[in-house]
Design a protein around this nucleic acid. Sequence first.
DNA 1: ATCGTTTACTTGCTTTGTTAAGTAAATCAC
DNA 2: GTGATTTACTTAACAAAGCAAGTAAACGAT
Lengths: 153, 153
Amino acid sequence: MDQPARLRRTDRSLPIALLRAREVVMAPIRVMLAESGISEQKWRVLRVLTESGPLEQTALAERACLLLPSLTRMLRAMEQEGLVGRAPDPGDGRKSIVTVTARGRRVLSDHAEASAAIFADLEARFGEERLEELLDLLEALTEGEDSKAQSRT
Amino acid sequence: MDQPARLRRTDRSLPIALLRAREVVMAPIRVMLAESGISEQKWRVLRVLTESGPLEQTALAERACLLLPSLTRMLRAMEQEGLVGRAPDPGDGRKSIVTVTARGRRVLSDHAEASAAIFADLEARFGEERLEELLDLLEALTEGEDSKAQSRT
DNA sequence: ATCGTTTACTTGCTTTGTTAAGTAAATCAC
DNA sequence: GTGATTTACTTAACAAAGCAAGTAAACGAT
């Protein structure tokens, strides 16, 4: 006799817990980004590109947690704003390689300090040790499953 | 002399790490929900309501991580689908109280088993202990800051 | 009682997310 | 090397997210 499955408390539902945690963490970052007129998604694109160097769009989308159609549109806008550039891949005509421009890099560096301050505050309130532990667990969770991860903002 | 602040590795950026982790965790749940035609957001609304009982929209929005405008529109649809009901608050004419209907409850129970299986699988792959630890940390992070948390999906 | 403020939504508009096609350049099978 | 597949996007169309205003009901102070 199976008894009816019960749903977990929402606090103990990993998807919901992750979402709520993200809202808490993003709150001050949204304030920061709002002041500069750049969206969360563009911010992620710039960070990923700066970290990984030039990337083709599929890889960029995956690392920035965006779907390709969203990325296509965003890159068009970002190209016009002079934040990124796109060049055809010399070896493969289907691909195009996205790079950050100096202007894009500048947007990041303009916010690096504020960003660091926000993180430092979080670290101070939550505890460095617990924060590192949390990041370790999240990293472990993501590991190996990069294959089919799709997106959302 | 302050040296220029450096941005963290994206794997070590809490907002990005949370987002990536969520993508991994949501993947099988999306499959489940897609089959039944209910959206992630509606799923969250139903779960929160079932857990907390009737709620006014502001509280519901906060707990389900939705912005009020999104919730307003979603509730209109969910009301037509017979998943929830809305009643004006007798004591305060500005508020309306949202309740789950029997049909709404049924949608949840119809998926409870599949949902439990998905969680069990995750638990098996990631480890029960680490999973509980992760949930503890996320819960701790969210605690106390419920004030200004706003939303996104 | 009246004016200003706060609270609780609702509406309108733009940007993203999502799904499904569509296109063009590789790659594979033979 | 020709046809079928696969890969890497792009386009289109529609729902949902997010921000800014707008409305209406409480509340607070005078």
